[in-house]
Computed example of a mutant assay.
Amino acid sequence: MASLKDSYSKQALWLKGSSMGSLRSALLLASLLLANGATAEEVRVTGVDGHTLTLHLKAKVWPEHSVEAASATFTANGKTFPLYGTDIGVEVLPRWLSPDKKTLLVNQTMYGMLSDGSGEDSFQSRSHCDVISMETGCVLLQRDDQFCAGKWVGNSWTTDEGEVLKPEMETPSPQALLKTLSNIESAQYRASEIEWSLVMGADSYMACHPPARNVQGLNDLGFYLAEGGNDALALKLYRGVETVGKRTVLMLNIADSLWRLDRKDEAQRYYSQYRDAMSADGKAQKIPQRVAERSAIQGMKN
């Protein structure tokens, strides 16, 4: 998917901080308030089968920059999850919902402090037009922000420049993403590539590629994220895989990430489950030393 790296080389620039929506959010959201009966702090767009995308107005203060934006959550079948990663700003208009209510266009803007490597930072932004499935909450595809200028013709989107697009998924599968990582030796660069690809957020990514059909791929992506230092995002993918079933290696991966996140009580429970599962399979001799050490430390603490 497209991202800030389309315009800036990662070797030359370092994104510091997070992403946020533009100052136009409040103006765009205002057109939805009366139609949806929502407050100025929350706006709801209702799609097919009553599935909803909810925008939450918020404020964020940067050094020398104060920016107001809206975050987004998706709700379907009693489950709610963030549509994007933290601090992604979202804009939406009523006319961006398709006639069959299965697809919604949103404008998301990334803000951050960028450094060119010489120590000089500048406040930068990059906007995109994303196509969202209102059936699942999957971010199907991403285009430049000008793509949101257009109209629905039937259930296909036609831009002002005449481009016609049927909403189809372009978000790469875990297997395809892992293939692009195969030649990257640096753990940090591998993790960075995954983070760029999961700009829509782990939950939305798993809405595109459900854990039940991507157990190994999502586990491997989580492992690479953790190896590169992003245990928080890795844990979200692990939790998705965990809903399918407790695999032995998954319990160890979860335990390690929890430990590094200083959630040691919870980590110890997973270490114990991993140790018991390995022992039951006759593989006690293959249990890493850290499992016994960390379980013992926690046991003494308790």
Rank of each mutant, 00 (worst) to 15 (best):
G222P: 07
E41R: 13
D265C: 01
K79G: 00
T136F: 03
H128P: 04
M251R: 09
G89R: 01
D130S: 11
S257G: 02
T52H: 06
A202L: 09
S122H: 06
R213N: 13
V215T: 15
E185M: 08
A72Q: 07
G201H: 09
I132V: 15
S18P: 02
G78Q: 02
V241K: 01
L34T: 10
G47L: 08
H65G: 05
N77M: 11
R239N: 13
R95V: 15
L261K: 01
A30D: 14
L104C: 12
S156G: 01
P172C: 07
S7W: 10
S7P: 04
L237E: 03
T136V: 06
R294P: 11
E170A: 12
Q175G: 08
V244F: 01
S173Y: 12
L114R: 02
K79I: 11
L28Y: 13
F223N: 01
D49T: 12
V153P: 00
G282S: 08
P63K: 10
K58S: 07
R126V: 15
L57Q: 07
D130H: 05
L233E: 10
H51E: 05
L32W: 12
N36S: 14
Y274D: 03
Q268V: 15
L178G: 01
N107K: 13
S204G: 04
Q108V: 12
R275C: 09
V92H: 03
V291M: 03
L27R: 08
Y271S: 02
I297P: 00
L114G: 05
Y189C: 03
N214Q: 13
A70W: 00
P63S: 13
F123E: 12
D281C: 00
L28Q: 11
G299D: 12
Y274G: 01
L104E: 11
F81H: 04
L23G: 02
M113E: 15
V199E: 03
S279I: 14
V131N: 08
T46C: 02
N107G: 03
T86V: 12
V92L: 03
W152S: 13
S3V: 10
K60Q: 06
A38F: 08
G154P: 06
R239K: 13
L53R: 01
Q273A: 15
V131Y: 07
R269P: 00
L28A: 04
G150L: 07
T80D: 01
T86E: 13
C129I: 11
G228H: 03
Y205N: 05
T243L: 06
D121I: 08
T248R: 00
V67W: 00
K79Q: 10
L165P: 00
R247W: 00
E227W: 04
S22H: 11
V164G: 01
C148Q: 08
S279V: 14
D121P: 01
Q146W: 13
T103R: 00
L198Y: 03
A212S: 04
S98E: 05
R190C: 04
M134P: 04
A69T: 13
Y224I: 11
G217Q: 05
Y189Q: 14
S22T: 15
D6E: 09
I287A: 02
E120H: 05
S156C: 04
S22A: 14
A255P: 00
S156P: 02
S204I: 01
S204L: 00
Q142T: 15
M110W: 09
A284R: 14
T180V: 09
